[in-house]
């Protein structure tokens, strides 16, 4: 009996770092932010009044929030197909026996993905600026554009989306590559003997076999894209005219600039619900496949 309790105490000692940080920095904040999402807490003074669902109902009347939701959805729907398709194709290209220097390509295409979003956004801000490289190149093709791409409400979000595709591709290519490498070589060999073309092999062998990876990539990319913040904060600050306002950036503005923390917490919970739904859909999709 004594040895058993000693064993348990030792286990507890091993787990203690996680238990403490989990309670303080995960469990407690998650519960606390539900609580303050039903209040008018400002964050500046301790006054806190229960307001029920008012924050949540107000959100759906808040034009900037709705705009932020819409922009985030456009961002997600507009980037994910491109990121996914390009990274699959890149992974197939790097994985193909025809290509040498695999290590170099793998590292080269992956490099932007390890850089921070602030660094990447700053570089692209330069490219997109009025006298930047993009306008300069367009001028060489005879297209005159004198305004910056991030300065106009019509092009700002699109410009950020293009940058995001560029920055994200490498990461997902690596994941697809590891998926591709788990496909046994014999499958392709026997398909080739049966006279299948390479496009047949791609659609009938590769794609079905990397489906779990595909679901995983789409799910984590969707979750990540719903949380975009650094690129917006660095490049546009949500402007011009809120045309690049996103959920998390608006959360930052309301919570930490306007000090409406109750309101911002409600926004955070809407984000949690969205992420939860995506995770459930991914799990369901995986289960229905197998």
């Amino acid at each position: 009996m004594k040895t058993k309790s000693k064993y348990n105490l030792t286990t507890l000692a091993f787990l203690l770092p996680w238990i403490i940080t989990f309670i303080i920095f995960s469990a407690y904040p998650i519960i606390y932010s539900i609580a303050i999402s039903f209040t008018d807490y400002s964050g500046l003074n301790p006054a806190m009044n229960f307001v029920g669902l008012k924050n949540y109902t107000a959100l759906f009347k808040d034009e900037i929030f709705l705009k932020a939701m819409k922009n985030t959805l456009i961002f997600v729907v507009g980037t994910i197909p491109f990121t996914t398709i390009i990274s699959i194709l890149l992974a197939v290209l790097i994985n193909s026996k025809m290509v040498k220097f695999k290590g170099l390509f793998k590292a080269g295409f992956f490099l932007p993905s390890v850089m921070s979003m602030v660094v990447i956004s700053t570089i692209w801000r330069y490219i997109y600026s009025a006298d930047g490289l993009l306008n300069h190149m367009l001028r060489m093709f005879g297209i005159e554009k004198s305004t910056g791409w991030l300065a106009s409400p019509n092009t700002a979000l699109l410009a950020i989306m293009i940058m995001d595709v560029w920055a994200a591709i490498g990461y997902y290519t690596i994941i697809f590559l590891s998926g591709l490498q788990s496909i046994p070589e014999e499958l392709y060999e026997s398909a080739a003997i049966d006279g299948a073309s390479s496009s047949d092999a791609f659609f009938k062998i590769t794609l079905p076999l990397i489906k779990p990876t595909l679901f995983f990539v789409i799910a984590i990319n969707t979750i990540r894209s719903f949380q975009i913040f650094a690129e917006i904060f660095t490049m546009t600050g949500g402007g011009p005219l809120n045309s690049t306002q996103t959920i998390v950036h608006y959360l930052y503005i309301t919570g930490f600039r306007q000090f409406k923390m109750g309101y911002a917490s409600a926004m955070a919970y809407i984000l949690v619900i969205i992420v939860l739904i995506i995770t459930l859909i991914q799990q369901r999709a995986l289960r229905s496949e197998y």
């Binding site: 989990f22 303080i24 920095f25 995960s26 407690y28 904040p29 998650i30 606390y32 932010s33 303050i36 964050g43 979750i223 719903f226 949380q227 913040f229 998390v248 959360l251 919570g255 930490f256 923390m261 911002a264 917490s265 955070a268 919970y269 984000l271 949690v272 992420v275 995770t279």
Partner: peptide, 17 residues
């Protein structure tokens, strides 16, 4: 699960803490 939950939800309480 804590890996999946958007960390923004914890930032306001952590800030207050």
């Amino acid at each position: 699960a804590t890996m999946m939950i958007p960390f923004q939800v914890t930032t306001i309480p952590i800030f207050i803490l």
